[in-house]
Amino acid sequence: MNLPAKVKVAFYWNASCGGCEEAIVDLGEDLFKVLEAVDIVFWPVALDFKLEDVERLSDGEIDVAFINGGIRFSEHEKVVKLLRRKSKIVVAYGSCAHLGGIPGLANLWTKASIMDYVYLKAPSVVNESKTLPKEITQTDAGDLELPAFLDALKPLGQVIDVDYYVPGCPPTPNVTLKAIETLLSGKLPPKGAVLGASARALCDTCPLNETKPEKLAIKEFRRPHTFIPDPKKCLLAQGLLCLGPVTRGGCEAKCIKANMPCTGCFGPLDNVLDFGARALSFIASIIDQRDEEGIKKALGPIIDLVGQVYKFSLPSCPLRGLIKRKEV
């Protein structure tokens, strides 16, 4: 598919921390190269276009829409459906749009108890009137609307049809640039592909991979805050829960180079059904214990295993429809 000279792009954010917006700016001087090739028609955080401007475009007029953030509110659902209509290509940009992201962990709790905690019970809340957000509030001047808080946070692909994914929390500049270059090149990969990143796990490009001992045998895992790891030795071998082996590479191992273990933000490789389950299997495989007690002891310091292995991908788990949500 050949894209025209000045490509029309849109950027939009759903339930987002803003990091993915910064990631675009983080391209630094390369941003100017990109700006030469594209015409931004919608970017709420940076430019003054309104939704009506998008509505006025014809269907498919936007060449590529980069959408980041998870679908948390009814408004997000509305806007992404609009953008889908108006765009030829939709790219889910960043972990939240790709897999659900960190906010996806909210799906472990019931919506009612989340509301309850956030607005009434949390230690730092002062809410004597016990006001909870309502979708419609009637006032003398008319009805005020707030978007509805959806039951579950969803990644973009569970709400609209997504063409490509750019992984990362946020996507690193090299990945963003490569993804954009791929899209602008006109030589598009098959639909559903992950752009800009590697087809192999992080260990492939990690500078510490060759320092791994012949066999990994962890008697007990360790938390990063409990010691200063040796920056020249594989972090997994030192007992840290580094998810490098199961995570897609391409990020240039930035976290490893900062002496921190990989937390899996680039998500799973192709052919892996579920990131969390795949991570559990490899972590278990290197535990050097032979009975249940020993295995639990090996895990001991890891008090939130779900949070560790599903940090970015809980809403993408095949079991998401069956989870029994807890009360906060």
Binding site: R200, L202, C203, D204, K215, L216, G244, P245, L269, F282
Partner: peptide, 13 residues
Amino acid sequence: KELCSGCGICVSV
């Protein structure tokens, strides 16, 4: 071998 990242987990088991 194309997909393998050389992480070595297999060697350990």
